[in-house]
Design a protein around this nucleic acid. Structure first.
Lengths: 146, 146
DNA sequence: CCTTGACCTAAAGTTAGGTTTAGGTCTTAT
DNA sequence: ATAAGACCTAAACCTAACTTTAGGTCAAGG
């Protein structure tokens, strides 16, 4: 069992954030001894999941919902499975989106490389995808399509 | 030349958002005819870049900085190139992070699939990575390492 | 003529996810 | 005995990125 300060250290999260999570109901049924929070293995695993779901873009209130399902036991396994399946689709879509953004940025890196060399954008203004290097053309078209 | 309403349609952005962007200085030197904004090709390209940079996680004030560099002309090519190079690293790191999150979620999908079948978590509680299917073991270890 | 609809501004309001503040308790080291 | 250092709460504050509101201009259609 750990104190809030120890958990803060372990996860690199401010104490105030851990208290905020608790206030928001992300640790349902957490123990206390004379008012002081006691983080057990259950809460540590909860925190790992919280970090993962947060990075996946889920909001606190939905994470709370999930934690409540966990507290309810085996009857909610299907709900939890559906949640992760939905989240998987969302994250896969997000990664695809980011790859398109990355291609746009790669194109811009190349563009300004040329602009720096030329000293102006005249040549670039006239350039069509087929005049670009293969790799850049690919990035340009992926970034601009649809 | 387009009105704010036409641009709103074209980009699927609320008119209020376009006005907000303008207020924040994202269209330096945009024309007006008797008070009414006139969006030209310059502003449309600016908007495409704004969408890209926003998705890459850049804040409005930094996008404004970039737009001011664009307005200043060829002397700022190096600054703009550096900006995109930095942004490229950031997005690449973000994609890596998302892939780890995705592996954690894949593991959880599998986990709850098993839990639903078993009706409890007893078997899962005893399971070590080497007992997991190859693909899941990989995801689990990628998601939990470091 | 007068109403509708697109445009405008300034300013206030909203939301998420925290952080900070102010005041209090408890334990431990000097 | 007192001062430092963890812990606690409630409530106020913060920031980014919008959105909403309230009030106004102007052109076209019935």
């Amino acid at each position: 069992m750990y104190t809030i300060g120890q958990v803060s250290e372990m996860f690199g999260l401010p104490v105030s954030t851990l208290r905020y999570y608790d206030r928001e109901g992300l640790f349902p049924g957490m123990e206390r001894s004379s008012g002081i929070r006691r983080f057990g293995e259950k809460e540590l695993e909860a925190l790992r999941v919280i970090e993962c779901l947060k990075k996946s873009g889920m909001e606190i209130r939905d994470i709370k919902q999930f934690m409540e399902w966990c507290a309810r036991g085996s009857e909610t396994y299907p709900l939890r499975r559906e949640l992760f399946l939905r989240q998987k689709d969302l994250v896969e879509a997000e990664i695809q989106r980011m790859n398109r953004v990355l291609d746009m940025i790669r194109y811009k890196c190349w563009y300004y490389e040329q602009a720096v060399r030329d000293g102006n954008e005249e040549r670039l203004a006239l350039m069509r995808p087929e005049d670009m290097p293969e790799e850049i053309k690919r990035a340009y078209e992926n970034a601009h399509e649809k």
